[in-house]
Design a protein around this nucleic acid. Structure first.
Lengths: 245, 245
DNA sequence: CGGTATCCCCCGCGATACTG
DNA sequence: CAGTATCGCGGGGGATACCG
């Protein structure tokens, strides 16, 4: 949190907000991440020391509140009111990225885990099928050495999405076999599914009605579009199951 | 422009936007600064090499366009369409700073030159007096060694504001003698003028009607408020005089 | 003035080890 | 697991020189 030695409101905000990793850390907190491990999972490449340092800085800045958990060891981190006020900035950064970041995503930016967990986080629960739908992913062209598992499963059943790294036991309804980079762009809306299929980079296999359900649930459109992302809180993926409303 | 190795739209935007100095540089470009020297004046503490580097990075990112000037030596820098799209982000950062940055401004953040030039940039031309109004500033409590001139003059005459470091020749209408830090907070709206006067940290001397005009023109209110700042382009302060409309 | 090239220092950050 | 403390390296960035 190095000072700009300026009273300009933009500079004062930049001192807090525009440090390395901070916007992404705030994104995680905006989405409801509370524990150190959760935050680290959302920021796969940050080192623990740096994460701890950033959290300390944000606490000092009055943006994050850190409360001891009953176990006396762990803590809970949450945004203060001032921190919550960064949410519109995160939203706007997401929009800039979605409209002007097209063409900036290199293969090295993609990673199956981020992608699948990101889908879980951002899927519209309303668009999920009422019955269970199991989608299996087989990614090719995975460049990152770490966490490069090629097979993933998504179990969709309104209003929940489960992510699995092992076959979930249920029968697979739809198999998506795709180049990781291509499918990531389709997910983001930067490429149309139709074009990616024509190029042979994405395949959806399964009974047509199921495939249609999966496309609807995942928001995979034939033509490119600007997918909006919502950064409001999600239920803790590792917390206790939410009681049915 | 270090990568986060992530396809997340927020991360992609952060790679470009959330680097040190970049938000402030974009603020300057948003306000219409075009030449290297102008940019450097708006970012007093940046080194020339770093400014050049940032401009190069932003050009590479397609955010800034760099065009040679006829003299074959200098260049003109301006925002591309993608760069223009950062304006809402700058505005929002300004708002965050104005509403949540109160109390974060330390005496070391203040500087007479920044303050006076900032007033020139952000004054509402509509609120300026029709006739000429000359305001003299005498700052005390200036901590910065460099560019610490204590005396400044503002010549207000709708729709123009002139900044002088020497007595402009015209008779002075209003003299503002103030502690730099206190007056900066009053200007920002973080402190009320009434309270600052009571504390003896700001004095306005001159015929009451003129003082009232100056207060109106400068937006100095008795009670604290959230002053909004506009970052849309201003006429070049060193360019040719604008022909009267 | 408006930059570019070079040098070099400092500190930001990663790696590692340690603790409850 | 959830951090804290320490060490050591690399590169980000300041200072300077130089050029058109």
């Amino acid at each position: 949190m190095k000072s700009y030695a300026s009273f300009c409101p933009v500079a004062k905000t930049a001192e807090i907000f525009a440090e390395r990793w901070t916007p992404l850390l705030l994104r995680e907190l905006c989405m409801g991440a509370r524990r150190f491990g959760e935050l680290q999972q959302g920021l796969p490449l940050i080192s623990r020391s740096l994460l701890a340092q950033r959290l300390r800085e944000l606490e000092l800045a009055g943006v994050v509140e850190r409360m001891p958990l009953p176990d006396g060891v762990r803590h809970e981190y949450r945004l203060t009111v001032e921190g919550e006020a960064f949410r519109p900035l995160i939203d706007l950064m997401g929009m800039w990225g979605q409209t002007h970041g097209r063409g900036r995503i290199r293969p090295g930016d993609t990673d199956p885990a981020q992608l699948v967990w990101g889908m879980r986080r951002h899927l519209e629960t309303a668009a999920l099928p009422a019955g269970r739908l199991v989608v299996q992913f087989e990614f090719s062209g995975v460049t990152k050495a770490w966490n490069a598992a090629r097979y993933w499963w998504l179990v969709l059943r309104r209003p929940e999405v489960d992510v699995c790294q092992k076959h979930p036991g249920y029968d697979v309804d739809v198999t998506i076999a795709a180049r990781l980079h291509a499918f990531t762009l389709v997910w983001l809306g930067h490429r149309g599914l139709a074009e990616a299929r024509r190029a042979g980079e994405v395949r959806l296999d399964g009974p047509p009605p199921k495939v249609a359900l999966a496309r609807e649930a995942l928001g995979l459109r034939d033509e490119p579009w600007v997918r909006g992302f919502d950064f409001s809180p999600r239920p803790d993926p590792f917390g206790p199951p939410v009681p049915p409303a």
